[in-house]
Simulated assay, not measured.
Amino acid sequence: MAENTVSEIERMVVTRVFDAPRELVWKAWTDPKYIMQWWGPKGFTVPVCEMDFRVGGKLLCRTKTPDGQEFWNAVEYHEIVPYEKIVSLMYFSDSKGNKVDPAQLGIEHEAIDGAYDVTTFEDLGNGQTKLTFIGNEPMESAKNSGQMDGWIEILDKVAAVVAGLVQAK
């Protein structure tokens, strides 16, 4: 039996249209002071967020669950096209950004080997921007594990950050 390749597996995809120019959506997604406001599903907080936003750079966030459990996430940046696309690899890590098996944290997570996360920012005109996040998880697994719902909650939090940026403009 042949193994599935990245192109044969339906990947998790979430989209959101924001009533904001692409530059503000990009800013909310790429500035650590705003990332701290939206990282993680509803009720999660981020006490620490460090970012080196460049190809080869890394984002490192200490995430706290509503019940007080803490863990680290890292994101490695592999491609950045300003205001258009970010290709990255997100994973659970230690405080130094070294990969940690999610099972060690009691977290169910299935990633597609060789797949990167891709985030695109599309200017729809009329002051609207479409953000599309394509995760490195299989869609079915993301639905079953709650990751899909988590990403929808994350995009709700991003929408609140973007709305604040629009008001401040």
Rank of each mutant, 00 (worst) to 15 (best):
E3K: 12
N4G: 01
N4W: 00
T5F: 00
S7H: 14
I9P: 00
E10I: 00
R11C: 02
R11M: 08
M12C: 09
T15D: 14
T15A: 12
R16F: 06
R16E: 09
V17M: 07
F18R: 10
A20W: 05
A20K: 05
R22G: 03
A28M: 05
W29C: 07
T30R: 08
D31V: 14
D31R: 06
K33C: 14
Y34T: 02
M36S: 10
Q37W: 11
Q37F: 12
P41D: 03
K42N: 07
K42G: 04
K42A: 10
G43S: 03
F44A: 05
T45R: 06
E50K: 15
E50F: 08
E50R: 13
M51T: 15
R54A: 08
R54T: 03
R54P: 04
K58C: 12
C61L: 09
C61H: 12
R62T: 10
T63H: 13
T65V: 04
P66S: 03
D67E: 08
G68L: 04
Q69S: 03
Q69I: 02
F71V: 06
A74I: 05
V75K: 03
E76S: 11
Y77R: 04
E79M: 02
V81S: 10
P82V: 06
Y83A: 07
Y83W: 07
K85M: 05
K85V: 07
M90K: 09
M90I: 11
Y91L: 08
Y91Q: 05
F92I: 06
S93V: 01
S93P: 02
S95H: 11
N98S: 14
V100Y: 13
P102I: 03
A103D: 09
Q104R: 13
Q104G: 04
Q104A: 07
I107W: 09
I107K: 11
E108S: 12
E110L: 15
E110S: 14
E110D: 13
I112W: 10
I112C: 02
D113Y: 09
Y116Q: 08
D117W: 15
D117C: 14
T119R: 05
F121M: 00
F121T: 00
E122Q: 10
D123C: 05
D123Q: 06
G125R: 07
G127L: 02
Q128A: 04
K130L: 10
K130M: 05
K130H: 02
K130N: 01
L131A: 13
L131R: 02
F133A: 05
I134S: 14
I134E: 15
G135A: 09
E137I: 07
E137K: 06
P138G: 05
M139C: 06
M139S: 11
E140S: 07
E140A: 07
G146Q: 02
G146Y: 04
M148Q: 11
G150R: 01
I152R: 14
I154M: 15
L155W: 12
L155H: 15
D156N: 14
K157G: 06
A159N: 13
V161H: 15
G164E: 01
V166N: 03
Q167P: 08
A168E: 15
K169M: 14
